[in-house]
Computed example of a mutant assay.
Amino acid sequence: MTQPVTAVPAATAATYVFAVCRHADDDVLSRLPGISTAPVRTLPFEQLHAVVQDVPAAEADRQSWTERLSDPDELERCVRAHHQIVTAVATGGPAAPMALATLYSSEERARQALTADAARFHTVLDRVAGRLEWGVKVYVSSASTVTATDRTVAPAHVPTGPQTPGAGRAYLDRVRGTHRAREESRRAALQTAEETDAALRGLAVAARRLRLQDQQLDDCRRTQVLNGAYLVDESQSARFTQAVAAQRRRTGALIELSGPWVPYSFAGEDAAHGDH
């Protein structure tokens, strides 16, 4: 059931910021749930608008939010609500998304901080106007580099009986061969990642390499060798997705494409994070 929209008294309210934009429809925003019971609204500053929501000050300190976001269900709810509002803002024009849980102790404190960063917001909005973010991840299956010899282990003790001539050398040769095969597989995967990134950067106006993350699927671990974000002109989206498909066919690698997204990765490295 949707919670009724109720105002939070200004004297006891902190300000949560979802995004910054040049234009926003307050009627549309007010119908979105957000992360509290107060209405989502705009806060004007320096020919820009911050999309904000009042949050009870008692619930806005760092410890409260750490506890809140440590609950998987609550984290998912907040992420979905945050993304829903950012996406709604972006349908009306370029938007600079703020990080999850960007909180200021008051509306006046939020306005002061955002105003101080106004020049950067104008730059970001110019950069992302008419552009979308695509995510591309390249994986190599760890299982694909494991052969029977990988699972060969040295005996727990050295038998005292007669040994087959050359048995020790053969074992060491198998181990060295396994190590070489694994290293060659890794080099090939890294080369695929670099080639894919280079090919896609040629179609993007900006690109970022994000932190790598492994995934465990059933009993097979996938090792990520590329986690890239690409800012692409809307008019080039079809060419970009075709280029990803071409890389899959050419390399045979496991390449995942996600998006298009609001350009979260290109809102600026020095985005404000609030003052819990």
Results as ranks from 00 to 15, higher is better:
268 G>V: 10
236 Q>P: 07
210 L>N: 14
167 A>I: 10
131 R>T: 10
232 V>G: 00
224 Q>K: 05
241 T>Y: 10
140 V>Q: 15
146 V>K: 14
125 L>V: 07
191 Q>I: 03
80 R>N: 03
95 A>M: 03
211 R>H: 12
256 E>T: 11
59 E>A: 10
212 L>F: 09
25 D>W: 02
20 V>N: 00
238 A>G: 09
264 Y>I: 09
85 I>S: 01
274 G>C: 04
21 C>N: 07
171 Y>I: 04
199 A>S: 06
228 G>H: 05
244 V>C: 09
1 M>R: 15
239 R>H: 15
44 P>A: 08
264 Y>C: 06
78 C>P: 07
251 T>F: 00
9 P>Q: 01
112 Q>K: 14
120 R>K: 09
85 I>N: 07
71 D>N: 06
63 Q>A: 13
100 L>H: 00
180 R>C: 05
51 V>T: 01
210 L>Y: 07
41 R>Y: 11
133 E>Y: 08
63 Q>K: 10
276 H>M: 04
214 D>P: 10
132 L>S: 15
82 H>L: 02
191 Q>V: 01
37 T>G: 13
216 Q>V: 13
207 A>H: 02
237 S>M: 00
54 D>V: 05
89 V>Y: 03
89 V>C: 04
63 Q>Y: 04
186 R>Y: 12
271 A>K: 14
175 V>C: 11
57 A>E: 03
69 L>E: 03
17 V>H: 00
215 Q>L: 14
148 A>M: 13
271 A>Q: 15
172 L>V: 02
257 L>H: 11
197 D>K: 07
49 H>I: 02
240 F>R: 08
190 L>S: 05
11 A>T: 12
52 V>D: 04
193 A>R: 02
267 A>Y: 11
75 L>M: 07
144 S>G: 15
40 V>C: 07
4 P>V: 02
273 H>N: 12
220 C>F: 13
210 L>R: 13
15 T>D: 08
170 A>I: 12
41 R>L: 09
264 Y>H: 04
119 A>Q: 11
247 Q>W: 10
124 V>P: 02
234 E>L: 08
177 G>N: 11
73 D>G: 05
223 T>H: 15
40 V>E: 08
254 L>K: 13
15 T>V: 02
266 F>T: 00
103 L>E: 03
105 S>V: 15
258 S>K: 12
132 L>T: 13
76 E>P: 06
7 A>G: 05
245 A>I: 14
251 T>C: 09
24 A>Y: 03
46 E>R: 14
105 S>M: 12
1 M>F: 14
11 A>S: 12
97 P>T: 07
198 A>H: 02
267 A>K: 06
165 P>S: 00
141 S>N: 15
62 R>I: 08
183 E>G: 05
65 W>E: 03
194 E>N: 06
159 P>R: 01
146 V>G: 12
151 R>M: 09
124 V>I: 09
154 A>P: 07
10 A>I: 02
133 E>H: 04
11 A>D: 12
62 R>Y: 00
208 R>Q: 11
173 D>H: 06
104 Y>Q: 01
193 A>W: 03
21 C>V: 04
233 D>Y: 05
74 E>A: 02
272 A>P: 15
40 V>A: 08
145 T>V: 13
25 D>F: 09
235 S>V: 11
186 R>S: 09
246 A>H: 07
171 Y>K: 01
253 A>T: 06
275 D>A: 00
153 V>T: 08
162 P>H: 00
21 C>Y: 00
239 R>N: 12
